[in-house]
Design a protein around this nucleic acid. Structure first.
Length: 492
RNA sequence: GCCGCCGUAGCUCAGUUGGUUAGAGCACCAGAUUGUGGAUCUGGGGGUCCCCCGUUCGAGCCGGGGCGGCGGUACCA
């Protein structure tokens, strides 16, 4: 009866639990990213998970669908609050609110969880972590170039070889120039412009032919679903596709080709000039092999106003089931000159970059980067309980280990010795401490080296032998316990 | 949102044309060993066969609806 009323233990979809191994590995990766950002002179800042909904640039939720895309709720004074869905909008709020107190340009980084109320997919969750760095108050493309180079350094620092990634750079102004040239310049074409940008954004997944369909009439996918196209003429489609494939062997010829494509559009020409400048800064610093102008990069977000970047992993890895897997983008960013200005009367230029922590982590695991695949840490030394009446004595042993800085715990369960050994094994304990009445009478303790013991077990076949051998177990006087354990830890 | 595939033990799955009390491997627990993690052997716990309705003498299996998972696609401020 009561059985059927039990709550079912389950996690909401799009959310995941993480165990100690993954947490430790992620911490190592985050530390490497942080070191790189700090090397470039960025400083930490932290903002809360929750902001006023309007500060995030989101329209207020309406009655029918209060959580469309973002998790939102009303405070007791009726004001709408939301869980942040990226780290950029909260930064803009922070900078605007503390404008006078911050040095300009303001260079800051932050890592944190963000939330999106969307359908989860492979590698897409409703809670995930981003690690951002932004420069606020610098209009110069030198700031953009620096962010790109830092992104490259970061990927290298976490263990991705130079040959296996590329930081792609494009410029929204150039895109605008192209759109202008095919007659999509005016206000009334805004919707169509967006459709074109979205189509281009799918180049890596659908290829030029898929994008051609999306730019024109529309496309039917394998599942039979139909996506309406942008409705461009064949001529306009050809121009857009020509633009996206304008990438050349090196940055200089690519920039020259782009300048040609946007000739006549002042905004487009400005964008091309900016890309040329970024290219020369990148070349001067020796990053021209990793930071590459690529006109196919768009980035879906509307708030970008100038250069946009995307960090892409180029290597293929074979997955568990033998399928080749491409990782693609693990981060991106761009210039968003209008975002802080929403809160202030004067315009505030800003540019920044965001790493998708979970995706980068998955990629690092797949390529076996030592930063995430290093052997799991040892657990604590486990002190076994042989006589329940002697708990105080065991507690003294644990305390002695702890005060020597050695992680240790008293077994607090109720099982017998065999189960306690299994417990220690499962905790990845380096050793177990055993003191029964015999040892106590002699003021000794047994130390069982579980790491060495596991090694010895391989050669033992019968249980009788195993028991008789008591591999890797030795006895020491109580007052030598700490130094003996310390020696043991030093060996493993 | 739309399209497709799939829901049987903690996990991976088997389950005959609809027919008694639904199985296996792994995992878990215990014993063989008053006090020793592996291996081996023996035993044990664990299932509203996703849910509801229907067809039937009888449903894990057939039909309808729902829910959930996975994949694709769209959206992603």
């Amino acid at each position: 009866m009561a059985k059927f009323e039990k709550l079912k233990a389950r996690i909401p979809r799009g959310f995941v639990d993480r165990g100690p191994a993954e947490i430790a590995a992620t911490e190592r990766m985050l530390a490497a990213i942080r070191e790189t950002y700090e090397l470039y002179g960025f400083e930490a800042v932290e903002t809360p998970f929750i902001e006023f909904t309007d500060a995030l640039g989101k329209f207020l939720p309406d009655q029918d669908r209060p959580n469309e895309g973002v998790f939102s709720f009303q405070d007791d004074d009726e004001q709408w609050l939301s869980l942040r869905y990226d780290l950029t909008a909260p930064l803009a709020r922070y900078v605007a609110e503390n404008f006078d107190a911050l040095p300009k340009p303001y260079r800051s980084y932050r890592a944190g969880w963000v939330f999106r109320n969307e359908k989860p997919g492979p590698g897409r969750f409703r809670q995930f972590m981003q690690f951002d760095a932004d420069t606020v108050g610098a209009a110069s493309v030198a700031a953009d170039a620096e962010i790109c180079m830092m992104a490259a350094d970061t990927l290298e620092r976490v263990g991705i070889p130079r040959a296996d990634f590329v930081i792609k750079v494009n410029n929204r102004k150039v895109l605008d120039g192209v759109l202008e040239s095919i007659g999509l310049g005016g206000e009334e074409a805004a919707g169509q412009r967006l459709a074109v940008l979205r189509s281009i954004d799918k180049l890596d997944r659908l290829g030029p032919e898929g994008v051609r369909l999306l730019l024109g009439e529309g496309r039917r996918d394998e599942s039979g679903d139909f996506t309406r196209g942008a409705g461009l003429s064949p001529d306009a489609i050809a121009r857009v596709l020509a633009f996206t494939s304008a990438r050349r062997q090196d940055n200089a010829p690519t920039a020259a080709a782009l300048r040609e494509v946007v000739a006549g559009s002042p905004r487009g020409e400005e964008g091309a000039r900016e890309l040329e400048e970024i290219a020369s800064l990148v070349a001067a610093a020796g990053y021209e092999d990793r930071v590459v102008i690529d006109p196919s990069v768009v980035r879906g977000l509307e708030y970008y106003t100038g250069p946009v970047y995307e960090a892409e992993l180029t290597m293929t890895v074979t997955s568990e089931d033998g399928q080749p897997v491409r990782f693609g983008s693990v981060g991106g960013g761009g210039r968003y000159d209008g975002l802080v200005g929403r809160f202030r009367s004067e315009p505030v230029p800003a540019t920044g970059f965001s790493i998708g922590v979970s995706r980068l982590f998955a990629a690092l695991q797949a390529i076996g980067s030592p930063i995430v695949s290093g052997a799991g840490r040892n657990g604590p030394v486990v002190v076994l309980v042989m006589d329940r009446s002697e708990i105080a004595a065991y507690q003294r042993i644990v305390a002695a280990l702890r005060s020597a800085g050695i992680p240790a715990e008293l077994y607090l369960g109720s099982a017998g010795m065999k189960a306690q050994m299994k417990y220690a094994d499962r905790r990845r304990s380096p050793c177990a401490i055993i003191q029964g009445s015999d040892e106590r009478a002699r003021a000794e303790v047994q130390i069982k080296d579980l790491v060495e013991g596991a090694r010895a077990a391989a050669a033992i076949t019968t249980n009788k032998e195993w028991k008789a051998a008591r591999p890797a177990q030795f006895s020491v006087p109580e007052d030598e316990l700490v130094s003996a354990v310390r020696d043991l830890l030093a060996r493993h």
